[in-house]
Write a protein that binds this DNA or RNA. Structure first.
Length: 278
DNA sequence: TTGTGTTTTATTGCCTCC
DNA sequence: GGAGGCAATAAAACACAA
């Protein structure tokens, strides 16, 4: 390995930097600035004790991490906005312009991409969560409506049965549930179904194979989320990603987003399960 | 002033691509 | 096999409440 050599950064910031023969070569041990290495490079110090002198540490040792100046950061930010990947030529140009080592520029971009990704994940989570919350409130409204309609059906059925029993035993015995009641119930089902499927992207809540409203009183929670604008959310993610992300990163990124959303949904499902699924 | 949490800069190890 | 990207992490710098 090309061992790091100390280079005094001639920039106005006076950073002391460890450099290899290229900006990417120095990837050695945690710090080559341990005592032995430093001694090797500073033969004018005759002893370890000398090197340990506080005065030396205060005044002579290479400076520790330095923050970039606001001007440097501004230029880097602008460059990042233009393009978040850094091709070698641009890296060299930026480094020259900023008085930094190319490696520092590369590191800054790497860290900046990581920060961008974190923020982006937060934004997408918020987006999905608000979609979910809005869907949940829609569902709550439909559920209440459902309850109301069911109780209406129930009271009408009762009334009808009372009426038929008062009509006398000489007549045909009524079916367990009168045809009228069933018709009424069917009507209600259709009404609810219409309401739920219209303008919702066609998610049939009372589907043919699924549990029916009157028989089971099962949940109306749809298989998909008709009110949830996940498509739009995904579009948003997609378009933003496309600006500066690869197809692969978008894919893995989306899977992360949806895993998070799914996890959240699962938690909600468990929390609300007592009335969702009972 | 000091303890603590957050942000920024830098390193390391692993992976993919050419 | 080298170059470069990313995730995880260390550590310095910074912010801020007590």
């Amino acid at each position: 390995m090309d061992t790091g050599r100390l280079i005094f950064d001639a920039s106005c910031h006076g950073n002391m930097l460890l450099m290899g023969s290229s900006d990417h070569v120095f990837r050695g041990s945690k710090s080559l600035l341990n005592m032995e290495e430093t001694l090797k490079r500073r033969p004018f110090f005759s002893s370890h004790e000398e090197l340990m002198e506080e005065e030396y540490y205060d005044e002579q040792l290479p400076e520790k991490k330095r923050r970039l100046t606001p001007e440097q950061v501004l230029l880097l930010e602008r460059s990042f906005e233009a393009e978040n990947k850094l091709e070698p030529e641009r890296k060299s140009q930026l480094a020259k312009k900023l008085g930094l080592q190319p490696r520092q520029v590369a590191v800054w971009f790497q860290n900046r991409r990581a920060r961008w990704k974190t923020k982006q994940l937060e934004r997408d989570y918020d987006l999905l969560k608000s979609s979910y919350d809005s869907l949940l409130s829609d569902f709550e409204a439909v559920r209440k409506e459902n309850e109301k309609l069911k109780s209406e059906v129930f009271s009408l059925t009762e009334k009808l049965q009372a009426k038929e029993s008062m009509a006398g035993p000489e007549q045909q015995p009524p079916p367990a549930k009168s045809e009228h009641a069933i018709a009424t119930a069917a009507d209600v089902t259709v009404k609810v179904e219409d309401r739920l499927s219209s303008g919702s992207g066609g998610s049939a809540v009372v589907d043919e194979e699924g549990p029916q409203l009157l028989d089971s009183g099962d949940s109306y929670f749809p298989d998909e989320y008709p009110g949830c604008d996940v498509g739009a959310a995904v579009e948003g993610v997609h378009s933003e990603e496309e600006e500066d992300g690869s197809e692969d990163s978008r894919r893995s990124y989306l899977s992360d987003v949806f895993a998070a959303a799914e996890q959240h949904h699962h938690e909600e499902e468990q929390r609300l399960g007592w009335w969702f699924w009972s």
